[in-house]
């Protein structure tokens, strides 16, 4: 049997037999080289209670080249692209070692959720949010966990959602912004989605709000 197949099969069996780590690996269209891994959000983090799925592709040169992994579940995290799910983690790149396994890599991803590295970000905007206003970041991360990963309701989202403006509110909270801020600029006659876009890009959150004056925002909105 081909060494790669033998190794992957053994890794899949190992994950199945291991009940304690709650890490699961499932086959996509019966090929052992395209898998979906999943794990639970680590406790004591905004990701707690969430169920995160990861797309896993085993390259031909595995295990001598790293597996390709990206999040299927949307995650609000400095080292994960909020758009594509791409992950910035050293062991998935140059620090890969052939002795690492699917399981150990998924555990590393889990611990990446515990300890973000905002200085080496994948998603610069999220990293900025993380650096400037931690509380607001965690609020948003929790909200994303709730919406996308089936986590428990975030305090903010659960409280205010009403039937009429739930859609627009979601957008605001999703971007980690304050509804009042968005409303303020929207009242000036700008498109709501544009306001959200600009405010997110300029990181109009927490302490940063005081640093950005309204003219700067309007200037950006007028572009």
């Amino acid at each position: 049997m081909d060494a790669r197949l033998r190794r992957v099969n053994k890794e899949i069996t190992d994950c199945k037999n291991d009940k304690t780590s709650k890490i699961r690996v499932e086959l996509v269209d019966n090929s052992p080289f395209h898998l979906i891994g999943s794990f639970l959000g680590p406790e004591g983090t905004p990701y707690e209670g969430g169920h995160f799925e990861v797309d896993i592709v085993i390259p031909d040169s595995y295990p001598f080249q790293p597996v390709k992994m990206k999040f299927i579940t949307k995650v609000y995290h400095p080292n994960v692209s909020s758009a594509s799910g791409a992950i910035c983690l050293d062991i998935l790149k140059d620090a890969w070692s052939p002795v690492l396994t699917l399981k150990s890599t998924l555990i590393s991803l889990q611990s990446l959720l515990c300890s973000p590295e905002p200085n080496d970000p994948q998603d610069a905007e999220v990293a900025k949010h993380y650096m400037t206003s931690r509380a607001s970041f965690e609020e948003t991360a929790k909200y994303w966990t709730h919406i996308y990963a089936g986590g428990p309701g975030a305090t903010k989202g659960a409280k205010v959602v009403t039937a009429t403006d739930s859609a627009s509110l979601d957008e605001v909270v999703m971007a980690g912004l304050e509804k009042a801020h968005v409303d303020k600029f929207e009242a000036l006659g700008f498109d709501r989605s544009k306001v959200i876009d600009v405010l997110r890009r300029l990181n109009y959150r927490g302490a940063n709000v005081a640093k950005l004056n309204d003219d700067r925002i309007v200037e950006e909105l007028l572009r």
């Binding site: 060494a3 033998r6 190794r7 053994k10 295990p63 052939p98 002795v99």
Partner: peptide, 9 residues
């Protein structure tokens, strides 16, 4: 018997 930790052979 020796089992290679990489290829499990």
């Amino acid at each position: 018997p020796f089992v290679c930790p990489i290829c499990f052979d």
